[in-house]
Amino acid sequence: MAPKKIVVFGITGVQGGSVACYLLEDGKDKFDVWGVSRSKTSAKAKELEKAGVTIVEADLDDPSTYEAALKGADNVWVNANFWLYYDGTNPDEAAAHEVQQNKDVIDAAIRQGVPHITFSAVRDFGDKFPVPHADSKVTIVKYLEKLGHDHALVYAPWFWTNVLLFPRRKEGDKWVVSWPVPDNARIPGFDPEQVGAYARLVFRDPEAWSGKKIFCASDIVSPVEQAAALSEVLGVDIVPHGLTREGFDSPEFQAQLPHELVLNYKAILSIENPKPEQARSLYPEAYYFKDWVANTPERAKAFTK
Rank of each mutant, 00 (worst) to 15 (best):
214 I>L: 05
182 P>E: 12
257 L>R: 10
274 P>G: 05
191 D>F: 09
243 L>V: 07
257 L>M: 15
171 E>P: 06
286 A>K: 07
210 S>C: 10
181 V>G: 13
231 S>M: 13
174 K>V: 09
194 Q>C: 10
243 L>A: 13
164 L>P: 01
277 E>N: 03
285 E>I: 06
218 S>D: 09
194 Q>D: 14
262 V>R: 13
202 V>W: 00
248 F>L: 10
268 I>P: 06
267 A>H: 09
197 A>I: 05
217 A>S: 06
186 R>E: 03
198 Y>T: 04
276 P>H: 03
270 S>G: 11
167 P>Q: 05
253 F>G: 14
250 S>C: 11
208 A>V: 01
221 V>C: 06
189 G>C: 06
217 A>I: 00
195 V>L: 15
237 D>C: 12
192 P>V: 13
276 P>L: 05
200 R>F: 00
228 A>F: 04
195 V>W: 06
171 E>V: 15
263 L>P: 02
281 S>T: 08
209 W>A: 00
179 W>G: 02
250 S>W: 10
277 E>C: 01
249 D>L: 15
217 A>C: 11
279 A>W: 02
175 W>P: 04
201 L>T: 00
276 P>K: 06
275 K>I: 02
181 V>Q: 12
261 L>G: 05
181 V>N: 13
269 L>E: 04
215 F>G: 00
175 W>G: 05
257 L>S: 11
194 Q>K: 14
229 A>E: 00
162 N>T: 10
250 S>E: 13
285 E>K: 15
157 P>R: 03
286 A>R: 08
243 L>Y: 12
189 G>R: 04
158 W>A: 07
282 L>R: 03
279 A>R: 01
233 V>H: 06
179 W>H: 11
219 D>S: 02
254 Q>R: 15
209 W>L: 01
188 P>H: 05
224 V>E: 13
